[in-house]
Amino acid sequence: MKAAPFDFVRATALSDVFAAFERHGDDARIVAGGQSLMPMMNMRLAAPRVLVDINHIAELNGVSETDGTLRIGALTRHQELGVNALVAEHAPLLTMASTHIAHPAIRNRGTFGGSLSHADPAAELPACAIASDAVINAVSSSRGERSIKAVDFFLGTFHTALEPDEILVSVDIPIIGAAERVAFDELARRQGDYALVGLAAKGTIEGKTFKDLRLVFFSVADRPILATETIATLEGKDYSPDTVTVAEAALEVDLQDIDSDLHTSAATKTHLARVLVGRVLAELAGEGRQ
């Protein structure tokens, strides 16, 4: 388990990254926390010729709030997401999700930008990004900066809308409204494992009535799934056992392309997704766990 030979470039500014892209083209690969890329390299599932280390680019750090938008730098570590006060106040879904990601040693290194760029369909943060209506900011030397809605960003397993010459620099998240609530749940066999099925949720709850829900499942398909049919059946409905039953039925449509994994069949995943939706809706409605 030794990585194939590679060169290493330490970038201290975005221009260094672009220069490396220019020079090495597809042979260059960004490394952030290295928590996904390094294992893949050691198993020789990835063999980039040149690693471009972005950890020393200062402008990729930091969490700030302006005009109702929370901006989270690409290098923000999972650990930081879990403890940052601005994140807790304005994007509590990320706070909740962060402790479900792996173990402390990995959270200390792994980055928000890395998790989104890596686009593992079982990862927590991509689902949270979609549930939070996040916008992903990417920069290239030739085309400058562009913003991509999270819902359009994830295209498949390890596949995103990022172009090969682009770097993800930050993520913008609309801050949570007064009537909005979030909930997060996942079913993992061991603490820190990737989930069999997970669900990130956000929505406006007036009394017991759901509005503008966003329910995003992960670890069910080749990308996080925004459960549009289920959301539609719930719009304007009050929380009740009947509502939950209807939602569970709608899920069948949203998850019709559900994938099995090594340990869990598609049928089991569908069942677990139904269980999760019941639990998460209850939590959103302030009913506690059913």
């Binding site: 340990h263 069949s265 089991t268 569908t270 069942h271 677990l272």
Partner: peptide
Amino acid sequence: FTPERILKALGKV
């Protein structure tokens, strides 16, 4: 005894 095997035994999947 994976979750799947237990759910299958229970007739839930």
